[in-house]
Design a protein around this nucleic acid. Sequence first.
DNA 1: TGAATATGTGATGATTCATTCACATTTTCT
DNA 2: AGAAAATGTGAATGAATCATCACATATTCA
Lengths: 211, 211
Amino acid sequence: MPGTSLDANPRKRPRQARSRATVEAIVTAAAQVLIEQGYEGATTARVAERAGVSIGSLYQYFPNKEALIAALIERHAGEIMAIMHRALDDPASRTLADGLKAMIEAGAAAHRLDPALHKILHEQVPRVGRLAKGMDTSRQIAETLERFLRLHADELHPDRDPATAAIVIETAIEALAHKAVVERQDLLADGLLEREAFSLAASYLLRSAIR
Amino acid sequence: MPGTSLDANPRKRPRQARSRATVEAIVTAAAQVLIEQGYEGATTARVAERAGVSIGSLYQYFPNKEALIAALIERHAGEIMAIMHRALDDPASRTLADGLKAMIEAGAAAHRLDPALHKILHEQVPRVGRLAKGMDTSRQIAETLERFLRLHADELHPDRDPATAAIVIETAIEALAHKAVVERQDLLADGLLEREAFSLAASYLLRSAIR
DNA sequence: TGAATATGTGATGATTCATTCACATTTTCT
DNA sequence: AGAAAATGTGAATGAATCATCACATATTCA
């Protein structure tokens, strides 16, 4: 099996404010070092140094490197999911088209949060053990979208099955946002990305063609 | 900079048949070990052992681990590009819709070539130095598709710019095929993937809505 | 205040790995 | 055949890295 996964659970809870700050500093430093050095170069020693704490402190709260990265991933994934939920649960998303627009904008925003970190997490972090869980954002978003599609079944193209369509659209939108942010920044000019993504999704999903 | 990249060029050319077989065995072993052990677990020693040759032989032809993986990537990418070109250059692709279908089927076929290897290459191999170059398949496919779209400009939806549309479609199709093969094998049943991908692409691209 | 608890330190051990090199074996070429 | 070139070998080297632990400092709380 790829990468024997160790126990990646937190070791000890920070109780005092001082230690909470330490943990925070460590995770933030991990993000920075990861961006600058890549996954292999992000050694526990370097992270601790950047955080301004000793190695020992790092191991006080994270049993190993994998757990540290897992914490970082969960923090990042949490931020993205929050943005997504806000978009689709927004009562302003009255119509299917509105919801789509909101979702696409949320996706773009999520990717712009911290593009460098997002890129490294996607490309360089071995998807192993608990790390994979944290990255499971996509499945959750697809489920949220599926519920939204069912709510607007009347506007949905009759050939579309909500479950399948949700996966298709979530996958495509995510891939587009990722590609734009990571290697085609030209698509980010005046919301070109958002317009194209909307055209793509809308023409596939909508019963009455608004292309 | 992430992952200081070393000289990843081949070291020595195999001249005799015997050594060509050795190199072949090493690259094939690399694929197997990579699949079984992940990127970190794929040590040069293990690869050599699996190939049934000594460490020394491996280093005779590959200056380092990165070069070895790069060779593997290039072999895999080459196979995929070959499939793609065959599809879009096929004279049977008379109409835009036909070409799209061919391209989508080629994409699916490419992913089915060796799904386990494809997955590991995409998810676990750091995109660094020469490794990144090899992974650049996507850009090439987008360019091929763009040319194809220009050839069929008459069928193209007037709002679509060929260059942008090519990127959008290539990205979406690739992402869908990848997702299906890697984590949604249910989409592979009776060509569901291909049908959905076609609906998505066609409704976005075509002037006259064939949805 | 001072005992108990929480937090912080960094030298050190143990392990793993990539890579080299001096030498052995096989193939080619004359 | 036999010299030269190609190919193959694997113990040894050296450099990283992860992770521990005995001890120091800071904070809490009775």
